[in-house]
Design a protein around this nucleic acid. Structure first.
Lengths: 134, 134
DNA sequence: AATAATTATATCGTGCACGATGCAAATCCC
DNA sequence: GGGATTTGCATCGTGCACGATATAATTATT
């Protein structure tokens, strides 16, 4: 029953983040999306979706809500008018300052040490790659 | 960014199970719920929710759909008339025969060996317990 | 150049997941 | 025994996640 652990852990993580994020007016998936833009700004919807292993039909309304909050902007790509480039607004970028505290708080809550966290990441990545390609 | 791995792995697992489950007319959360009843029949809604770390507001409509499919039955507990006991129907119990094949297929797809799977389970359980109590 | 196939994104319908709220039954406390 | 509190479950509104479908722009083919 390996599915059970991931299923419940995912919900527990979501619920642990939520109180910190609601202070910022964010949901957990919205926060994860912003972290990708903090890493690299001005991405296509498809690029973001691929990193999250999600479909654009999930991402489009989520991005619309981030845009309504004034955290991102949607610009047409002049080279390919089909594409929509997602860019951080100044407010969206400023929110990055809050991230380290939240991450530290979460890592602390896991009660896992550095080696365990690293091993967990490795196992999850291997599992995801394996299942996604099978 | 430990949150990212769990977030995406959870979706990958869900998506890997889905084609096997749609053949049975089930969704992934419905399947997980049934596995708990295969382990132990006649459970309260709250008991099931606690094992899944979910709220009853999520479980109630899910159970209603399982009932509509004729896989479970809802009986009043004579001792405590607030409680609703969830019981497997014959059809719901018969579905258990399909489970081993699906599990084997999934475990195979992860490309993790027995020791890695066991370690993953341990780490996820420790993380869940830590975060849930912090 | 005209048509066909592909790609990027959006829209719609279903189902999960949560918090807030409501209600009835049980329990507590006096 | 009787009122306050707790417990078990349901309902409602919001947001995520998916597949199916639609539309427009690009690219490939003839």
């Amino acid at each position: 029953m390996f599915c059970y652990g991931i299923y419940t852990a995912s919900h527990v993580v979501n619920r642990a983040y939520t109180p910190h994020l609601t202070r910022l007016g964010l949901t957990y998936p919205q926060y994860i999306t912003l972290t990708l833009l903090w890493e690299r700004d001005a991405q296509m919807v498809t690029e973001i979706a691929a990193q999250l292993r999600m479909t654009t039909s999930t991402l489009t309304p989520l991005l619309k809500r981030l845009e309504t909050q004034g955290l991102i902007e949607r610009c047409q790509d002049t080279r390919d008018r089909r594409s929509v480039l997602i860019r951080l607004s100044p407010r969206g970028r400023a929110l990055q300052n809050e991230a380290p505290d939240i991450t530290a708080c979460m890592v602390d809550g896991t009660t896992l040490d550095g080696a365990e966290l690293h091993e967990l990441q490795r196992l999850l990545a291997k599992l995801s790659d394996g299942l996604a390609s099978s």
